[in-house]
Amino acid sequence: MTDEMKPENWPAWATESVEVVEANPAWSQQAQTEVMQLSELLQGLAMGTFEHIGSTSIPGLPAKPIIDLMGKVESWDDMKLIAERLNPWGWNYVPPELDGREYRRFWVKVKNGRRAVHLHLMLPGEQRWERQIRFRDVLRASPELVRAYAELKIKLAHENKHDREAYTAAKSEFITQVLDGRL
């Protein structure tokens, strides 16, 4: 029996390097297509709305070429049923023990051996839901912040090319400053 907690047992997509690419106007349509498919696959479950979040949801912002979606789920109890519906479509569940974020249940859709879509499922009332939406919307309304964030993301991707967690953590101060209205 293999120990999934050990990095040497993780699939290749779990340790992909950080790659930030130029903004792609097709990301918005790709997100809409994924949301439609998720809505069909998860029909009949206690699911709420889906939102396109993250850098691919902000026009003109360079990003890792991975669509980030966020969805509301009424309970964690349906994860096994959700897995049965999503796994055949290339979705992989990352349990909280590996994800390290208890506030969400995290899914990765893999295409051609690489991450293509992330799905962050959250319970109603989760504070991070509103923070994700607010950050996206503030950047969508501010070309200056988009430029500043783009420069930071490109710099951090270069500095943290082989450490996704460090890349994500290094962006947190900028995100907090935006959300606190200091930028």
Rank of each mutant, 00 (worst) to 15 (best):
D68I: 00
M1E: 11
L179Y: 05
K171R: 15
A166N: 09
T33F: 11
M1L: 14
S28A: 12
V138L: 11
T2V: 11
A12R: 15
R140S: 05
F50S: 03
M79A: 11
Q30Y: 03
Y167R: 03
Y93T: 07
K111P: 02
W10F: 10
V138F: 02
V21H: 02
Q127T: 13
A169E: 04
P62W: 02
D99Y: 06
L156V: 03
V108Q: 03
T56M: 01
Q127Y: 11
P62K: 06
V73C: 13
V94Q: 01
L61W: 00
G113I: 11
A116E: 07
E19T: 06
I58L: 03
E151R: 14
E159C: 14
Q43F: 14
L81Q: 11
S17A: 15
S55H: 01
N112W: 08
R85A: 10
R101A: 07
K171L: 08
A150F: 03
R164A: 14
K6G: 10
T33L: 13
L123F: 02
T176W: 08
F106N: 00
H158R: 15
A46Q: 13
L119K: 01
A46K: 15
G71E: 05
G71L: 03
E51P: 10
A83G: 12
V20L: 03
D3Q: 12
E173M: 14
A170S: 15
M79P: 09
E84Q: 12
R101T: 06
S55Q: 03
M36C: 09
V108T: 07
V178N: 04
K109M: 04
E22W: 05
D77N: 14
E173D: 14
A141W: 05
G60N: 07
K153M: 06
Y93F: 15
P124I: 09
W91T: 07
M1T: 08
L139Y: 02
R114K: 14
I82C: 10
G48D: 07
A148H: 07
E4T: 13
A141M: 06
E19G: 02
V110Y: 04
P124E: 09
E51F: 12
S39H: 04
I175K: 02
P96G: 03
M36I: 10
I154P: 02
Q132T: 05
E97Q: 03
H52Y: 06
A166C: 12
L41F: 08
A141H: 06
E102M: 10
W76Y: 11
Q29C: 11
W76H: 09
L183Q: 11
G48M: 06
Y149F: 09
L38C: 10
G90E: 06
E126A: 13
T2W: 08
W129V: 08
H158N: 12
G181L: 10
D68Y: 00
A170P: 12
I175V: 15
R115E: 05
L61K: 01
L69P: 05
S57C: 11
N160A: 12
M70R: 07
E84R: 10
P25S: 07
N87G: 04
W89N: 10
N24A: 05
R136M: 08
K111I: 09
M70T: 01
T33I: 14
I133C: 10
A23D: 01
I58M: 02
